[in-house]
């Protein structure tokens, strides 16, 4: 999940789309057709009726990312795309994890939960089901520790993110961060 070596890193793209049938397929299909793996994708309604926001995490080099963002922007139902740079955005993910916790290990698991400030949702004789919320890095660290006890199952929502500061995605300059590096040639959306 974490960005590492080989020139690639994780990019978080926030995509404002019309809430129309098939829009998820169009977006996902475009990634597949251009040969990119989606690391995570979270989609849900926005405050504006009829509009949804997709938060897509993709591990890719800068140049192919620029191309895929340009292609995404050509989709008729895509209204706006911004890339959220790590330092300039708040990012959160939610996960549910069922971990083995019998006998003396239970106290150790609960201790970890306490340190990470995560909640226990369900308790059985053999397991604890934990709700973890936080940055992807925090959840990753928590998982590393829980792994030692034995993870029964795991569900993650994928990352959601918003840019820091006082403006929304609609109010940011028409130029998109991911595509506008070369100058003012690019002004609009859709082709």
């Amino acid at each position: 999940m974490n960005g590492n070596g080989n020139g690639r890193r994780l990019h978080t793209i926030s995509v404002l789309v019309e809430d129309k049938p098939g829009v998820l397929t169009r977006v996902a299909g475009l990634f597949a057709a251009r040969g990119f793996n989606i690391d995570s994708l979270a989609v849900g309604p926005t405050a504006e009726p009829g509009l949804s926001r997709m938060t897509i995490v993709v591990q890719v080099d800068r140049k192919p990312l620029e191309q895929v963002v340009k292609q995404l922007n050509k989709l008729i139902n895509v209204i706006k795309i911004v890339e959220l740079e790590p330092g300039e955005a708040v990012e959160r993910e939610l996960m549910l994890v069922k971990v083995r916790a019998e006998g003396e290990t239970r106290a150790r698991v609960l201790e970890i939960c306490d340190v990470f400030r995560v909640r226990v949702l369900d308790v059985t004789h053999k397991t604890l089901t934990i709700e973890g919320t936080g940055t992807p890095e925090k959840l990753q660290a928590l998982l590393e520790l829980l792994r030692d006890f034995g993870i029964v199952e795991l569900a993650r929502t994928g990352r959601i993110a918003l840019a820091r500061g006082d403006v929304g995605i609609r109010d940011r300059g028409r130029r998109l961060k991911a595509v506008g590096e070369r100058g003012p040639e690019w002004t609009g959306g859709g082709v």
């Binding site: 140049k63 620029e66 191309q67 340009k70 292609q71 922007n73 050509k74 595509v179 070369r182 100058g183 040639e185 690019w186 002004t187 609009g188 082709v191």
Partner: peptide, 18 residues
């Protein structure tokens, strides 16, 4: 080009004009 996705796709442009 009218399509921004064509610019820089195969060959970098010194002066792109959409």
């Amino acid at each position: 080009d009218i399509d921004p996705a064509e610019i820089g796709k195969n060959r970098a442009a010194d002066v792109p004009i959409v």
